[in-house]
Design a protein around this nucleic acid. Structure first.
Length: 486
RNA sequence: GGCGCGUUCGUCUAGCGGCCUAGGACGCUGCCCUCUCAAGGCAGAGAUCACGGGUUCAAAUCCCGUACGCGCCA
């Protein structure tokens, strides 16, 4: 009996880490952390053509960004050497070969000399006759002499695993329950390719066993391969891990989430200004929930609450709108200083950091705190404190275009020129008094004032904003806005 | 084509035989708050629980079939 909980994430380094992959990683990670177990990262780089170091780096970066730390596995894209080598499948071929040989020696696997053309023909015929396109096992019964003959003729061979042909294999899945597959319908799986390398389904079994994985948590698409894998475990005399097959993630149109649906790489979400904790929270809720339908899980709550039993069987649609809402929730909860820290790359890119002159970023960001939904929005909502006022067309037409605005702006400038204290409440009183004195409605004054100072019709609460902006800037902006009228 | 999986508001979901005239969340609509935009508060629209048969005193919940979707094998 395996007592320690050990899960793993085993990506192929053939591109960036996409949303579906992260969700699988997240669930493995959550499960391991919940049970105080270990989470292992293994690189399935047996596809020599498409595997790249850059992909490994991208995957590692994505996981680090999301805070999904692993207990065993590579630490950067180049560490397929030394102690990290065992976590790269390409460094494990000797191990696979050993077990491949063992199965062959024990008569549980046999070489198959069929060529691709022969297999294709076989398949076409089967389809024509409306039979399942299953390999017919013709090389299974080859005698030693016949095999030597094939070898002598220089034929290359693959190695096939002898699937039992009677009974059924039951996958006892934590999420889906008992799923039964008839063995007679399973074909003799290729476990060593003609090129000599192990196939995915074989290497995966060997690794999961040798790495003592207790729970294999993976995407739904692997469920159909599981009976074959179970039979390989049996043939090797190994205990099978527990299986849990997660539902897939779909795009808005109901098909499997892919590039067509826009951003699918995790790092793209980072660039768009999403917080990793929001991403994690949202992703956890795709296919998992608690019975009280709780939405926001802060701190360790996700780890504490997570269970495979709470996982959904049916696929879920990825919804950017809800993700964005959730990101806003997290941004609102972040203290301003931290918020600025997190938004640093975006502030720098917008030229707002380091602050050259003007009010402190803390005060300015605090004014708009409840409005942010993305880190990338921070600069755009506060930049008018640091840049010359640019009046939007809408503001110009609707507010500055009204009659008497020029007089109002000049009047305000005069009234505020030497006003003290230049602070929220006092300013409000003073400006309301100005309205009363002039016989104007507050709206006739507040709106032009805002536009003159910010160039926009919407923005932070007015008087506090004026305070933060400071007397000098406010008065000069009022005057310059007035000057530009007529 | 065979096998497997799935199907509750637009979306994520609660539900595991009576508490369901189906609950929550996002989004949407309206109202309140209000100097704008948000945030917040309140209210509302929105699901004949894919469809058709059973089982049962009673079914979203159990069984069978059909349809549709998805996956795997190719």
């Amino acid at each position: 009996m395996k007592t320690e909980i050990r899960t793993r994430f085993a990506p192929s380094p053939t591109g960036y880490l996409h949303i579906g992959g992260v969700r699988t990683t997240l669930f493995n990670w959550l499960f391991a952390r919940h049970h105080g177990g270990k989470f292992i990262l293994r690189i399935e780089d047996t596809d020599e053509v498409r595997s790249t170091d850059d992909s490994v780096t991208a995957i590692l970066d994505s996981m680090r960004w999301l805070g999904l730390d692993w207990d065993e596995g590579p630490i950067d894209g180049k560490t397929d050497q030394g102690p990290h080598a065992p976590y790269y499948q390409m460094k494990r071929v000797d191990i696979y070969n050993k077990h491949l040989q063992r199965l062959q020696d024990e008569g549980k696997a046999y070489p198959c000399y069929c060529t691709k053309d022969e297999l294709d023909a076989m398949r076409r015929l089967a389809q024509l006759e409306k039979r399942p396109p299953k390999y017919d096992g013709r090389c299974r019964s080859l005698t030693e002499a016949q095999r030597r003959e094939q070898e002598a003729a220089g034929k290359t061979s693959s190695l096939r695993f002898k699937m039992p042909q009677d009974g059924a294999t039951v996958v006892d899945d934590i999420i889906r329950g008992q799923v039964s597959f008839e063995n007679s319908l399973q074909q003799d799986l290729v476990i060593r390719k003609t090129t000599g390398g192990p196939t995915y389904n074989f290497a995966c079994v060997i690794d999961d066993h040798l790495m003592a994985i207790s729970h294999v948590i993976r995407g739904d698409e692997h469920l159909s391969n599981t009976p074959s894998q179970i039979q390989i475990y049996k043939a090797l005399g190994w205990e099978t891990p527990r299986f849990a097959h997660l539902s897939m993630i779909l795009g808005p149109d109901g098909t499997k989430l892919s590039k067509r649906h826009g951003a699918t790489s995790v790092l793209e979400y980072k660039e768009q200004g999403f917080l990793p904790e929001a991403m994690r929270n949202y992703l956890a809720l795709l296919g998992w929930s608690t019975t009280d339908s709780k939405q926001i899980f802060e701190g360790d709550d996700l780890i504490k609450s997570f269970s495979l039993e709470g996982c959904q069987k049916n696929p879920a649609t990825f919804d950017t709108v809800k993700l964005t809402w959730m990101n806003g929730e997290y941004m609102r909860k972040l203290p301003v200083a931290q918020l600025i820290e997190r938004a640093e790359p975006f502030l720098k890119a917008a030229g707002l950091l380091p602050v050259k002159e003007g009010p402190s970023l803390e005060k300015v960001v605090a004014l708009e705190h409840e409005k942010f939904k993305l880190l990338s929005e921070v600069p755009g909502l506060v930049d008018f404190f640091y840049k010359p006022v640019e009046v939007t067309p809408k503001a110009k037409e609707k507010v500055l275009g009204a009659p008497g605005v020029k007089t109002v702006l000049m009047g305000l400038a005069d009234a505020l020129q030497d006003f003290s204290p230049f602070a929220d409440k006092a300013l409000e009183e003073r400006i309301r008094k100005y309205c009363a004195d002039q016989g104007l409605k507050p709206g006739q004054v507040f709106h032009p004032l805002r536009v003159a100072c910010t160039g926009r019709t919407e923005g932070p609460t007015l008087f506090l904003m004026l305070e933060v902006m400071g007397q000098g800037m406010v008065v000069s902006r009022l005057r310059s806005a007035a000057a530009q009228l007529n």
